[in-house]
Design a binder for these strands. Structure first.
Lengths: 340, 340
DNA sequence: TTGAAAGCGGTACCAC
DNA sequence: GTGGTACCGCTTTCAA
């Protein structure tokens, strides 16, 4: 069934040399070949159903036109649009995407990079970076161009595309203040992730900028960016700060966890307490109450990262660049004027 | 920076022949080589940082250990868990995944298959099949093993993994009937997709089985599986069936669209009208009212599809098999006893 | 403008 | 059990 047609078959059919066919089929070198020959080669290739063998070209050229992407969880609504954006930006310039789910343990995290390196990917996108990440180390050592997206390292040894988390928290806090809130607490994400750590930092500086004190117990760290962890942490946060009038959560899932914690205590949102999320993931406009949140365009982040990586591969970009996207405030029903 | 280590370097270092190294490194052929040699080869490879070149192996072997996946939209919460499941099942047996977003126009749909074939993927997973799909045709012609997932063709020329859509609708309708509903209408999905068409069929047979008539206007077809299209179609559906007490939607997004349509008319769910969705996508348990729906395990579907494809590649499976997964009813707050 | 030939890095067959 | 060798399909340098 599968009598694969090679460049040689096309050459024989036409009575020309394989290298001529190769040249005629490469847009960049077409000009070196006689116009009529090009025409006939293209026609014959088409007619015979010739498909160039990417493996052979990769071997010869030393470039695969393949990009590896590592995400913590493909099904996570934060990461899937990033992949979509990447795919979109990269397909345009002839790259395909190998997607890998991040295994939890550190050892196989490095293994997966080795697998991708073995496949001779031309570059790597990591959506999983910790503040100090040995996966990045590994890529640099291997000489593989790498771009971080969504989360960045503390240092700028690899270029990255992230949302301005400090700015986002500023928007959230200022919105609450404009509604009269003063006793605002923070449901933080894991410190080891740049999103968790930067949003916490942003929260503090926004409070400070507004002349509000951040009490000792006003920030609690959730163990993970999940609803369950958020519910747990929010319950503790409420216990420690019974007079708080507003919660700023480090992401939407945590905010929804806080909804659950509130419901369990019989406190209402937004009447008793206001809540702000972060990310504006799908459907948070339909939960009850509709969630006020900070919108980040994850798809655009992916597109930017794709373009940055291609530039890096082509040697046009110095590592160390950091692209910061502006977030925006989306006001819905989970925040309201406070009475005290 | 990138003085890539080849099998030759390892061989020279040890004073053995490259083919010996190759054998020692291949678990299946290790037994042909002296035990001590194997040991030394492995150590040296490790020490030198040798990574086998997948392109070279692909070229020689004729198999890439690469699988292509085509989805309509990576960010869609139906498809991302499918990809996760595929990845999970395939990584275990050494396959990596090339993910491609489906372009809308039919021509580039075929182009994308050509691209994947050029990359010498060992198999293809299509999550995008229409009832009669020339992409499937193309794969068969090209001799590429292919598995359909989530949506299937009408014929069984390619094996597929799908949810039992007829059974799902049966569950939905029977649930409503048990709550006393009689005037049940259907917010259908696009007929050209197997999900749309089969759920419509399922709806009809479930009604028939219960001895209920399906009136002429009791089914309306939405133009797409989106909230906006669902809202539009639902409004029309309500206009044509003012006395309906329950809507069965062909998926959750359509059901949420129906929420919007109801709200606009000032009718309440579930007091005035009950709604059932389909898929149990993330967060539909947190919308208001929490959505009663039919749960499908998309992740498991992906895993099954991966296993099926591997079997197919290994020649263990005859095409034409269809794996049907059982859905289940998840009762929440959008359905209630009817009063009339 | 085209042809010839080498070789990318493995694998597998055939000898010994 | 190990070495030699050809070759997978394409690209590219060198010659003509």
């Amino acid at each position: 069934m599968n009598a694969v047609v090679t460049i040689k078959d096309v050459a024989n059919e036409l009575g020309v040399h394989p290298s001529t066919v190769s040249r005629a089929l490469d847009p960049a070198k077409r000009s070196l070949v006689g116009k009529d020959v090009v025409q006939r080669v293209i026609e014959t290739a088409e007619r015979l159903g010739y498909t160039p063998d990417a493996a052979a070209a990769t071997l010869r050229r030393g470039r695969s036109k393949l990009i590896g992407v590592i995400v913590p969880d493909i099904a996570n609504p934060v990461f899937s649009p990033i992949i979509g954006g990447l795919e979109n930006a990269l397909a345009e310039v002839g790259y395909a995407l190998i997607v890998a789910d991040q295994p939890s343990d550190a050892k196989s995290r490095l293994d997966i990079i080795e697998t991708l390196v073995a496949r001779r990917v031309d570059g790597l996108v990591l959506a999983t970076a910790a503040l100090r990440d040995d996966a990045v180390e590994r890529c640099i050592r291997r000489g593989v161009p790498v771009v971080l997206v969504n989360r960045a390292e503390e240092s700028d040894r690899a270029p990255s595309v992230v949302s301005d988390d400090v700015e986002g928290m500023m928007l959230a806090v200022q919105h609450l203040i404009s509604l009269g809130h003063q006793r605002i607490v923070h449901l933080a994400g894991p410190k080891a992730l740049s999103t968790g750590s930067l949003r916490r930092k942003g929260f503090k500086s926004a409070m400070k900028a507004a002349g509000l004190a951040v009490k000792r117990h006003a920030i609690i760290e959730s163990t993970a960016f999940t609803r369950a962890a958020g519910a747990l942490a929010a319950a503790e946060l409420l216990k420690r700060n019974p007079d708080a009038t507003a919660i700023v959560a480090a992401n939407d899932l945590l905010a929804l966890g806080a909804y659950e914690a509130l419901a369990r205590e019989g406190r209402r949102c937004p009447e008793d307490i206001s809540i702000v999320g972060h990310n504006d993931m799908p459907l948070v406009d339909m939960v009850s109450p509709a969630l006020t949140t900070i919108r980040i365009s994850h798809r655009e982040m992916g597109e930017e990262a794709g373009r940055l990586l291609v530039a890096l591969i082509n040697g046009q970009e110095t590592s160390g660049s950091r692209i910061v996207m502006r977030p925006s405030l989306i006001v819905r029903q989970s925040t309201a004027q406070t009475l005290n």
